[in-house]
Design a protein around this nucleic acid. Structure first.
Lengths: 244, 244
DNA sequence: CGAAACGTTGAATGGTTTCAACAAGAGTGG
DNA sequence: CCACTCTTGTTGAAACCATTCAACGTTTCG
């Protein structure tokens, strides 16, 4: 019996591991401290220490780094169901900033609560760490994309990956998904100029592959897009954490 | 009293945390299973599971991903003192390959031994996890470099970072260091073509900043290079793991 | 000696950026 | 309610950075 309104994180983890009632209860308790953040105002800045982690339940966040010359590189996006700042708590190395792309609802997770939850339910701990390693794999794939894919394939890959992530929490399908990002976000994430992002999007649209418009991504030719991007979701669709 | 011939990893950790005799002993025991690998033959392949971790004591390794179209992106290099495949053991998500750049000496670390060591000496565990988070920060910085730095600054930043890492284990200084990488390695790491790497290196050389030649990097104008690269070693020179 | 790996250089091509200008909608304050 | 500004999106033309192709030199190694 799944909860009436499972949180996105619960949904995501449940897609890979069958969680017991007790584990679901602990997970639910982690969602206790609800917090809100308004779009555009950073949740945390580079160099700030002692910050909490969050579980995103609604809204989008991006984690980025600003360079001395003012250019920005977005490292990753967080969508509902994603952890945010997990490594900062576990390992204390947050040298980037977090900006809510839209208004955000999140649960604050204190270090103590997290460690306690881990101690109580090792299987849950494994599942969460597995999710963290999945995030890391995405950063690596992101690096590969920027380094070795041309703009069209890079964009296609990005839109497909986002779609897969959202599908996992019921917010997207092979038809498309809602996406509040601006072309500037895409530019800063993909290492392109905003102008070129616009052109690439037009090409993809005119090729009948995808449309990115008015806050919505629509896949017109999913498999064609997969071909263009050479999208291999192996790094996303893992067999799940190794649990006995 | 430091050991007569401290391992590079011991050296590195000691630069940030004062380890007790007992902790040093545990660390030494982790170095027990010595293994050798010859240059060019992969230590592990993409998709392979159930692999051990290694502590590099001599030689260089690169971790990379091959794309369907044959292009390669090097994600990171490992130099003596670095862990290799740590995340694969802790979290099981190694979707990239490891190639020894030169002949390599490493200590194999079995999952069980590592967990046992962690249980025995929590401070050592924290120190090692801190080192892992530092590696992660380098991958993020690498992503930023590829996405938002032009070729010259990217190369300069890369050479400087490598220098800092090597200095930590006594294998480099602000004068320079030995570096067995080929221009092809640089190209695959920096997301450039080998031809352009050659040109960029020439420019840097002719500007009197650095020379990369015959397996040796020589800094001619360290601070000039730092300026060009906008190199801010904050993500490397952390205050160390938070230990009580 | 021949092959293979690495380095070097030129010329042509092309993907991307920059600069510039304009359009449309949202929000703001008078 | 209407100017006004700000953000976001759009498009063209010129400039530029980087790639590709091609050729050649050097060294290493079997």
């Amino acid at each position: 019996m799944t909860p009436l309104a499972a949180s996105p994180l619960t949904r995501k983890l449940s897609a890979f591991v069958a969680l017991s009632e007790a584990e679901l209860a602990v997970l639910a308790r982690l969602h206790g401290r609800r917090r809100s953040f308004v779009a555009g105002r950073d949740m945390a800045h580079q160099g700030q220490s002692d910050q909490a982690a969050f579980i995103l339940s609604a809204g989008w966040v991006c984690s980025y780094k600003i360079q001395p010359d003012g250019t920005r590189q977005i490292v990753d996006f967080q969508v509902p169901g994603d952890f945010l700042g997990l490594r900062s708590v576990l390992l204390r190395t947050s040298d980037h900033s977090f900006e809510p792309v839209v208004d955000v609802e999140a649960a604050e997770v204190l270090t103590g609560d997290l460690l306690e939850a881990f101690a109580q339910t090792p299987r849950l701990a494994t599942a969460i760490l597995w999710a963290a390693s999945r995030d890391e794999a995405m950063v690596v794939e992101h690096l590969v994309g920027i380094g070795r894919r041309e703009a069209g394939a890079r964009m296609a890959h990005f839109l497909l990956e986002l779609g897969s992530r959202l599908a996992l929490v019921g917010m997207g399908s092979k038809e498309g998904y809602d996406c509040p990002l601006t072309q500037y976000h895409l530019a800063d994430a993909l290492g392109l100029s905003a102008v070129h992002v616009n052109r690439v999007l037009r090409q993809l649209r005119e090729s009948g592959l995808v449309t990115f418009r008015d806050g919505h991504v629509t896949f017109h030719d999913y498999s064609g897009l997969v071909d263009l991007a050479e999208f291999d979701p192996a790094y996303l669709d893992q067999t799940g954490p190794l649990l006995k």
